[in-house]
Nucleic acid binder design. Structure first.
Length: 96
DNA sequence: TGGATGACCAAGG
DNA sequence: ACCTTGGCCATCC
């Protein structure tokens, strides 16, 4: 991992406004990466001080191990999940 | 060197 | 709506 991409990803995630979300793939694209997996990995080990919970799968679901915590954070910002599934059409952050 | 393993994704069955 | 497949990238056996 080079320091460069790490900063890129951190900066993108940090710029997501409260109450909005992005998919891992979206973050990858905005950060100039080719792999969404890499974003997930980065947030997993270096996202503690970031609003990592505003990043989820592109279909609105979240990985099992963090499901509870993530949805709880989002609920606090007004992002409601129906059956553990967020409505991306409604909360996805559109900006460029 | 090779395969398995993730906080992933899009397209097909 | 659920599963598989092929692509993706870094790490760890």
């Amino acid at each position: 991992m080079d320091e460069q991409t790490l900063e890129q990803v951190r900066s993108v995630v940090a710029s997501i406004p409260p109450g909005r979300v992005l998919g891992y793939g979206d973050v990858a694209e905005l950060a100039g990466l080719r792999s969404a997996r890499l974003v997930g990995r980065i947030l997993a080990e270096d996202g503690a001080d970031l609003p990592w919970y505003r990043v989820l799968r592109s279909d609105g679901t979240v990985a099992e191990h963090i499901r509870h915590r993530q949805l709880e954070h989002l609920r606090a910002e007004g992002v409601l999940a129906d059956n553990g599934r967020v409505d991306m059409r409604r909360y996805r952050w559109e900006a460029e």
